[in-house]
């Protein structure tokens, strides 16, 4: 019971201090808008919002979670307030889960902004909502853990931003968002399959447009394994680098 008091308060503190600050809320709203607008401007013909919705959901989560978590943890480490958490009698796994929970919730909230907006313009009947919700949660978890992996690998806030982009931009182009996996050159395709976002986007495509390339179950399992691997790898790095 006592450890959950700590868990809950770390989560609430992070939500208040970082994720629910006005600049971040406006980022969560403006970002999906900007992406939608970009897709609409890019296309000379009418773009079906339903076609681009899976991509916008995935990118909103990816951008919302990775940099936010990486920056907040790096920021707290610089100010040494993260030390306070490491010195508290909380199991390291639980502590890191508490630190990532805020980013996961923020990612899920970001995902539902484009969904809510699209409801004003299109009919979303026929969408497999259960798969959408599960995939949104799993993309948020894996993207957040990617942010954790980045946070553990850098020392400065600006490095966290740079390193985040190092992962994010290749992922956007290789996850099947711009070029469907089926049309991607064969020699690049293996690269797509080592990126967690590929599986997340594919589930969303299947759930929203019935247009998946990989079996949904394989994608779910792949996302869980990616998440697990990144979390455990990050915990190992925290023990090795921060508790010397």
């Amino acid at each position: 019971m006592k450890k959950w008091i700590a868990f809950w308060n770390i989560l609430v503190k992070d939500m208040k201090n970082y994720y629910l600050k006005p600049p971040n809320i406006s980022w969560g709203i403006i970002f999906p808008f900007a992406w939608t607008l970009m897709f609409l401007l890019r296309s000379k013909s009418d773009v079906d919002i339903r076609d681009i919705l899976p991509g916008i959901i995935a990118i909103s989560i990816l951008f919302g979670t990775t940099s936010m978590l990486a920056v907040t943890i790096t920021f707290e480490r610089k100010g040494r307030s993260f030390e306070r958490l490491l010195l508290a009698p909380i199991d390291l796994n639980l502590l890191m889960m508490a630190k990532t929970a805020g980013a996961i919730i923020f990612g899920i909230m970001n995902a539902f902004v484009p969904i809510v907006f699209s409801l004003f313009f299109i009919n979303l009947s026929g969408v497999n909502w259960i798969s959408v919700i599960v995939s949104v949660v799993l993309i948020s978890v894996t993207s957040t853990f990617l942010g954790l992996f980045i946070a553990v690998s850098v020392n400065e806030v600006f490095e966290a931003q740079t390193f985040s982009n190092f992962f994010r931009f290749p992922m956007i182009f290789l996850c099947g968002l711009f070029i469907p996996l089926s049309q991607m050159p064969v020699f690049i395709r293996p690269l797509s399959f080592v990126l967690p976002l590929t599986y997340g986007v594919d589930i969303l495509k299947a759930a929203i447009n019935n247009d998946g390339y990989i079996s949904m179950w394989i994608s779910f399992i792949a996302l869980i394994l990616f998440g697990l691997f990144m979390f455990l790898f990050s915990i190992r790095n925290v023990k090795r680098k921060w508790i010397m």
């Binding site: 019971m1 450890k3 008091i5 809950w8 308060n9 201090n17 306070r84 958490l85 508290a88 009698p89």
Partner: peptide, 16 residues
């Protein structure tokens, strides 16, 4: 960013 009181209350919460 947190005030003095909230800082103390948060630190106490870390000990359950």
């Amino acid at each position: 960013e947190m005030n003095g009181f909230d800082n103390l209350a948060f630190c106490a919460s870390l000990y359950g």
